[in-house]
Simulated scan of single mutants.
Amino acid sequence: MPPDHADNPPRGGVRHLEVSPEEAGQKLLQFLTRRLGPDVPGSLLLRLIRSGQVRVDSARKKPFDRLLAGQTVRLPPIRVADPAPGTAPLPALTILAQGPGWIAVAKPAGLPSQPGTGHADAASTRLAAMFPDATFTPTPAHRLDRDTSGILLAGTSYQGLRSLQQAFAAHSLRKLYLARVHGTLAPGQTLTLHDTLAKSGPPGHQRTTTSANGKPALALARCLETDARTSLLELDLRTGRTHQLRVQLANRNLPIVGDRKYGQPDNAPRMMLHAWNITLPDGTAVRLEPDW
């Protein structure tokens, strides 16, 4: 969590937070949520803003008003519990590349992109721990499945984060994955994976399936090598549906090795799906070879 400015009183007193250039453009509620972290409920922040206890340059603002660099946000005293003592430090993520407003890190298999029920450790929390003094905490611009390894992009400023998110939405980023699958194809053989997919099932137990009422899902597959039982595929992901590649390959009798949800029983220690190459709209390419 970014620290308060040096001239602010101790924890629990009135604080004056200056909006840095990296934070400019955020909505007021968004700014405070990122600055204060998960210890302060969003419902409390909403009440403080709507009651006028939060001021921006001495004026009342609405929760979704956007902030400018250099503005000062006055925050009334807020009492939150101190962090539990003796908490072990989180392991750092490997930094692969960085540029204006963005950073690329290596997400290991087994680590969620975001924290959730039953798992506080995540790529986003490790990024926050790696950059405790950042005025804008590096924030993932997309997600990788917990069991998928590879390149994760994060914004190091609000504008950088928005630019990445817009590039993902516009499909102006090229994302290449590697997958080891059960089944054999001829080296050089290509497949067009085009389906309509939808999620079904109760929360926590949802599965992605083909559905006439689903959303379009498109990827291109190319076989790089094969052996007696498996093939190594390079996958050019054109859309970003939940579990898209896993479902599309399984539906074509090419389940990913180690995929416990959509695959077949095997002794693989992990799922062999890896985000290995991302090319940004400006042509910058980030690559990371898998460790399997």
Rank of each mutant, 00 (worst) to 15 (best):
K107V: 09
P108D: 10
A109E: 13
G110A: 08
G110F: 04
L111W: 00
L111R: 04
G116A: 05
T117P: 09
T117H: 12
T117F: 04
G118H: 05
A120K: 09
A122M: 03
S124A: 15
S124V: 15
R126Y: 10
L127C: 11
A128H: 04
A128T: 08
A128R: 10
A129L: 09
P132A: 07
P132G: 12
A134Q: 10
T137P: 07
P138M: 04
T139M: 09
A141E: 07
H142W: 02
R143P: 06
R146D: 00
G150H: 04
A154M: 08
T156P: 11
S157H: 03
Q159S: 14
Q159D: 13
G160H: 01
G160P: 08
G160A: 09
Q165H: 00
Q165K: 04
A167I: 03
A167Y: 02
A167Q: 07
A169P: 00
H171V: 00
L173S: 05
L173I: 15
L176E: 14
A179W: 07
V181T: 14
H182W: 15
G183T: 12
G183A: 14
L185A: 08
P187R: 03
P187A: 01
P187I: 01
P187H: 05
Q189Y: 02
L193K: 07
L193G: 11
H194F: 03
T196G: 00
L197I: 06
K199D: 01
P203S: 05
H205E: 13
H205Y: 03
Q206H: 01
T209V: 15
S211Q: 06
S211F: 01
A212R: 10
N213I: 01
K215I: 00
P216C: 06
L218N: 06
A221P: 11
A221E: 09
L224H: 10
T226Y: 01
T226R: 11
D227Q: 03
A228H: 13
A228E: 14
R229T: 14
T230L: 02
L237W: 00
L237M: 09
